[in-house]
Design a protein around this nucleic acid. Structure first.
Lengths: 237, 237
DNA sequence: AGCTTTATCGAACCTCGTTCTATCATGGAA
DNA sequence: TTCCATGATAGAACGAGGTTCGATAAAGCT
């Protein structure tokens, strides 16, 4: 986690006199498109159409599609940050970490496209850095060396990102046309797994039932719990 | 983790009489391109040129780029599987899990492009499933419920994938032109972090030294250790 | 009134994945 | 041997997408 970005020379805050579009409008429309149909739906032409403008205009606010997405992520992360800031309890640090991690995860679950890039690049200044900091401040309350703390926070972010990224890739047809439900989709594969040789695939047979009815959130919570338990042990509390 | 693929109707094994190209050749060239310059370098035209053939030919072996990459991953995962199969010790299950996870991670570190898609889609039949199974067989030696086992293996895979995916996105210019070394790159951002208000960003200041000199592998090992410690606790050993 | 900066627009360009059609070799059937 | 189905190849053409460019207008400044 926490790899910085090459540099994003933020445009000088110019006075938007009669701004028909402004960066905010572009970002809002971007988020709309992403929410509605995920990353593939976000094309510059579609965005321009929605904004009632030309493609070229977008390039005045943003250097390209990459920056567009990065800025959109920062945009929605602002909301998440507010949510997280409201819940910095003063109780057990591990419990606080859990609450914050779950909040992050739920935000991603709501916007699967976030999962793909989430927290992969922490800019200097920005909401992702602030989120990282907020998480870390809880870790400051643990009796750890700075290195241990760095690793601890990275690990927690990793669990969120890893399980969150998973949500970003739902089965394609199931969503588009409703021909196959999620149950059918997983059921189909579970059946294939059950058909495997039990001698050769004992583990797959052992967990196929759990796989068939598995819930992404529970899976995330379980992974988080393991990491937090290890952390509690390391901190000796 | 472990989301199955929509279905890959594997082409019937036809006799390759005087096969000038064969699926293997295509896959090898694909892996070469990916190794040399990552995913963006893999275009069908570049692949065709390297094979000394036309783009259309590739489509005879593979249904499209997606399947091409999936098959390429399966291709290299075969080697990883062999490595892993040689080291299924009979000692402490947790130790065995660690060894296998580290082997997986190192394989990804060698081929950063693997990180992005690694284990995101576990096909029915295939090396990724076999790897998953191998990991799981170790977990079978732990006193856990099937659900706990399912979550445990998913968590371990998640740690590998999450930290492995991180390697898949090194700073771009640093590799292309050697104008900026890795040290300079991280040093630059560390400096920016140090310039932040210590009151507002106490955690960032606490760990900035560790960040500046951080090592991806150590970070992965630390995260893995936390998960394994939690697992050991859960299994009561 | 000029001139510069800010902002907009869409045509044109280029790359890429994919499709389509033409073509050739091979191998068995007649 | 001849002929056709099949295996296999090649590359032109299509369409979608990101990005560049030049033209243009509106707003501020001198």
């Amino acid at each position: 986690m926490t790899r910085p970005r090459p540099e994003a020379p933020d445009r000088p805050a110019r006075g938007r006199r009669r701004a028909s579009h402004s960066l905010d409008a572009v970002l809002n429309a971007t988020v709309e498109l992403l929410d509605e149909a995920g990353e593939p739906a976000l094309t510059l032409r579609a965005l321009a159409t929605r904004l009632g403008t030309g493609v070229g205009s977008i390039y005045w606010y943003v250097s390209g599609k990459d920056e567009l997405i990065d800025r959109a992520i920062e945009h929605v992360l602002g909301g998440v940050l507010n949510e997280v800031e409201g819940q910095t309890g003063t109780g057990d640090p591990i419990d606080d970490l859990r609450v914050m991690a779950v909040t992050l995860f739920d935000a991603i679950a709501d916007r699967p496209w976030l999962g793909a890039r989430f927290m992969r690049n922490i800019d200097v200044q920005g909401n992702s850095l602030r989120l990282y900091e907020k998480l870390g401040q809880v870790a400051l309350r643990l009796e750890l060396t700075p290195l241990q703390r760095f690793h601890a926070v990275s690990a927690v972010v990793g669990v969120v990102a890893s399980n969150g990224a998973d949500m970003g890739q739902e089965p394609p047809q199931a969503v588009v046309d409703g021909s196959v439900t999620r149950e059918e989709f997983f059921g189909h594969h579970a059946a294939a797994w059950r058909a495997l040789d039990p001698e050769e695939y004992p583990f797959v047979h052992d967990i196929v039932d759990e796989f068939e009815g598995h819930d992404d959130r529970e899976q995330f919570l379980a992974a988080l719990e393991l990491t937090l338990a290890g952390l509690r042990l390391e901190a000796g509390i």
